[in-house]
Design a protein around this nucleic acid. Structure first.
Length: 491
RNA sequence: GCCGCCAUCGUCUAGUGGUUAGGACGCAGGGUUUUCAUCCCUGUAAUCGCGGGUUCGACUCCCGCUGGCGGUACCA
């Protein structure tokens, strides 16, 4: 059998993690089985669909590494196809005109709710006489087309590839609307016509569509088509496991993750482990490998919650696994601001690779290489030298030693000089390097100090040492400000 | 209300009638280290949602309940 799957997003919003997740499964299934993956845009909700959203979805999917073999098809371009199918059902007496008004239908549903029975359309317009039909039409009363659920259809059963057998009582479904008053088809109908004409063999979609499936099955049957196979995977849950993934507690927009410096391969990998148990206890797998190993039978019926921690971890894994050359390219593309000069970024790559989890972490970690630091007393207060009250003295000694240091500074000479100096001043070597680190970067945490200085340049490093030595301790003291503020609040 | 889906550490999971219930993230501690991180080691944490069965024996099978979620549209 020729495997053909499809992804059918609605362009009613930017690319959502849930949409990427929904793309992954039919994509992998098709690739794994040498099948075709088809992209179809379900834009029949004309009030909410836009071309901008559509473009965002295409770009995002490509960025994540997806490709498709056919499409994108647009449902709004296929209106004649749906009309033809409607006409066929009408002439086969499998569908009918319904002139009920929304108010009448509302009333009907309310009555049913009061009686605590299922809310099913009564079938009032099912058997209008020819005269009534003409009368309504001539009166140009608005109408919709309803599908006539066969009276003897009984239980609609289907074997789901993830859930096994699922069944629904056709009596509880009733006659569903397949075409609006505007002539535009409804989702459940357009999907069936498309899936038939596009020869979709496997429908992989979210389990929010499980209850749509029986409605679609009877339409496949009425149109004389063979049924595709269905697989309904669970939706991603919010991190508190309440409700499907929404922007309530995390961003859901793929763009936001791109801007934060998450790698597309890490995002795809993370989404994959949310729904699929990889072979051999693996959790890290590229999309190419997944295309070879994907196994639908290892998809789970239970839903998983989104966990930003694990996504970050995976992103870090991918960053560390990348070659310096590749990471440099990614970083340069990510840091669009030209003041991140290419030569410095490239040199910094090996220093930051094991220290960043997201590309955006690069900025905070290496800020001091690109801009002069702003010194802050609260940072000095964390130093042991400061606690011993010797900062001024040690800074002066450092300045003197640095000025005497022969050029060019090399890491071994630099290290040896300051090790010796720490001995002379009888302070810990670690404490010496910490105060040097702060003097040069203004930060307590930096990439390895000697290598950083090499990239920074010895002239600039010396200048900073001189500057900090002469200005200490007249820096803004943010911790003091804070405690004053706290004091005021207590009062 | 009605219909359906789901239910193992905080989170992601393995498990398929007999296990000290295993792994990953996170967290805590230790080692390596000029800081941080990486790496390595150790620890932490699940009375397997609840109650009934079936069985010599149930996380595993059956039933009920509860809870969460989804559908119940001239949304997709």
């Amino acid at each position: 059998m020729q495997i053909r799957t499809r992804m059918a997003p609605s362009p009613t919003g930017n690319l959502h993690l849930g949409t990427a997740y929904a793309t992954l499964w039919p994509y992998l299934f098709a690739r794994r089985n040498q099948g075709q993956f088809i992209l179809r845009i379900e834009d029949t909700d004309t009030a909410r669909s836009t071309k901008d959203f559509e473009a965002n979805i295409f770009n995002g999917l490509k960025w994540l590494g997806f490709s498709w073999d056919e499409g994108p098809y647009h449902q709004m371009d296929r209106l004649p196809n749906y009309q033809k199918a409607v006409d066929q059902l009408l002439s086969d007496d499998k569908a009918y005109y319904c002139f009920c008004t929304p108010d009448e239908l509302d009333k009907e549903r309310q009555d049913q709710a009061a009686k605590k029975v299922a809310q099913v359309y009564s079938g009032k317009c099912r058997n209008l006489s020819k005269d009534q039909l003409e009368e309504f039409k001539n009166g140009s009363k608005p109408y919709v087309i309803r599908f006539k659920m066969p009276d003897d259809r009984g239980l609609i059963k289907f074997k789901d590839l993830i859930h096994d057998e699922i069944s629904f009582d056709s009596k509880l479904i009733g006659d569903t609307v397949i075409q609006r008053g505007t002539g535009i088809p409804l989702y459940n109908f357009a999907v069936v016509v498309d899936d038939i004409e596009m020869k979709i063999s496997h429908v992989l979609r979210g389990d929010d569509h499980i209850s749509n499936t029986p409605k679609q099955i009877v339409l496949f049957e009425a149109l004389g088509a063979t049924l595709p196979l269905f697989a309904h995977y669970p939706m991603i849950l919010n991190s508190d496991r309440i409700g499907k993934l929404s922007k309530r507690d995390n961003s859901t927009s793929v763009d936001d993750y791109r801007k934060e410096g998450y790698l597309p391969e890490a995002i795809v990998n993370y989404l994959a482990i949310l729904g699929w148990t990889m072979p051999d206890d693996r959790e890290i797998m590229t999309i190419k490998e997944m295309e070879a190993f994907f196994d639908l039978s290892k998809m789970r019926p239970s839903a998983a919650a989104f966990d930003l921690n694990k996504l970050e971890w995976i992103n870090g894994e991918y960053i560390r696994a990348m070659s310096d050359l590749d990471l440099g390219k990614r970083l340069l593309a990510f840091l669009v601001d030209p003041h991140f000069s290419e030569d410095k970024v490239v040199k910094l790559v090996p220093l930051v690779k094991e220290r960043i989890k997201k590309l955006s972490d690069f900025v905070a970690l290496t800020d001091f290489i690109f801009d002069a630091p702003e010194y802050d007393l609260s940072v000095f207060k964390k130093l042991n030298v400061e606690k011993a009250g010797r900062t001024k003295e040690v800074l002066a000694a450092i300045k003197q030693a640095a000025e005497k240091l022969s050029k060019p500074w090399t890491a071994p000479v630099f290290e040896e000089t300051f090790r010796k100096l720490s001995e002379e001043l009888s302070i810990q070597v670690g404490d010496m390097f910490q105060i040097l680190r702060v003097a040069i970067s203004g930060q307590l945490v930096t990439p390895p100090l000697f290598e950083s200085i090499e990239i920074l340049g010895q002239e600039e490093a010396l200048k900073r040492i001189q500057n900090v030595s002469s200005t200490y301790p007249n820096f803004p003291d943010s911790s003091a400000d804070f405690s004053m503020k706290e004091l005021a609040e207590i009062k």
